[in-house]
Design a binder for these strands. Sequence first.
DNA 1: GCGTTACGGAACGTACCGTAACGTTATTGA
DNA 2: TCAATAACGTTACGGTACGTTCCGTAACGC
Lengths: 203, 203
Amino acid sequence: MDEVRRPGRPRDAARDDALLDAARQVLLRDGYAGLSMEKVATLAGVGKPTLYRRWPSRAALVADAVLHSFLASVPGSPAPGPHATGSQRLADWFRAYAASVGDPHHAAMVLALTAAAAESPHAAESLYRQHTRGQYESLVGHLRAGVASGEFRADADLEAVADALIGSVLYQLLTRTEQAAPARAEHLLQLLLAGLRAPGRPG
Amino acid sequence: MDEVRRPGRPRDAARDDALLDAARQVLLRDGYAGLSMEKVATLAGVGKPTLYRRWPSRAALVADAVLHSFLASVPGSPAPGPHATGSQRLADWFRAYAASVGDPHHAAMVLALTAAAAESPHAAESLYRQHTRGQYESLVGHLRAGVASGEFRADADLEAVADALIGSVLYQLLTRTEQAAPARAEHLLQLLLAGLRAPGRPG
DNA sequence: GCGTTACGGAACGTACCGTAACGTTATTGA
DNA sequence: TCAATAACGTTACGGTACGTTCCGTAACGC
């Protein structure tokens, strides 16, 4: 996994950062529709070929910009204690996730990634899924821990739960201008937990 | 509500249909990103000004194209019997919804609408919400019927349930190339029903 | 030095945008 | 019958962004 030393002048990492920052700035202000490659390059003070040398398309650029800002910050956010129960870990994760999307910066990033994935069905798999896999798997991990400890039913479809949690936040983001109400997220959480608990075990 | 007879040559309704059909055709083949106004006009055998006379933007055209094909077909699809319970009505509705999105034609329409809403935050409210309100309200209606009959808890946040059901389908659509597994939809349904039922009432 | 690659800048042809100007056609109303 | 009006198809327009290709220069390894 060593860095392969290529001949010639090495790429300037500062340019990567400048371009990614510019992309995020444009996304926050004008959304995915308002992001053009020229605008990003100009804002970053960088030539167009330099931009295209790094990312072959708008979707690829956006995906990286989102990945390096928002997504990396969520997975283990509240760092649940090692002795936390499955339901506690699940609740901590989901509350942190819902809250982070309440931040307009993060909301803009999620919307941009959604736009990139939705506008071209062929890219959906390679974009959206690949870049949200980290969150998804950490969520499923918390759920699995609950099953392993006997707190959750063994026959539960954990991915269905994960889809519902993440999907509901996404749907609220797409349909509501007001911020997604934390109360609603909490309610959904309790509802799913009630259905998840193993029979004969108290809440 | 009479049709106001304006002077001059009336618009040809056949052109509307041709344009909407062409738009759907392009969306299915190339997605939202591949839809240009020129392509739609050419495919419909219609001049560009004729297209712009009817829809001022790509998003508006797509919204109408989607609305007149897919959305109108869902709301009362299986036509639940008048004596059906809330959970039966809910299950019927959701199964029909999940199945309809399994159809590539419908999936393409939902993705297109999602792309239009996500790419420009300012348009999200007027686009996505307005055009999916019918489905959303009919779903919440089924839930309310369950509450009214005492089958569901009175303190349930029905919109949270609706967001989770619709959102999970949307999220699967965005992340999975394979068709959303009906089994997963069924599992989520049962999970939510378990949490919804009023205490002291058997499933 | 020499080969290779990165960089900013400029220019390229293409595609699509949204609008305007035609002449033609269809409908209303005097 | 005949003007007025508006929807049509066609063509053309200026503008923007696309993605690529050069240029000359800069930074590295050999």
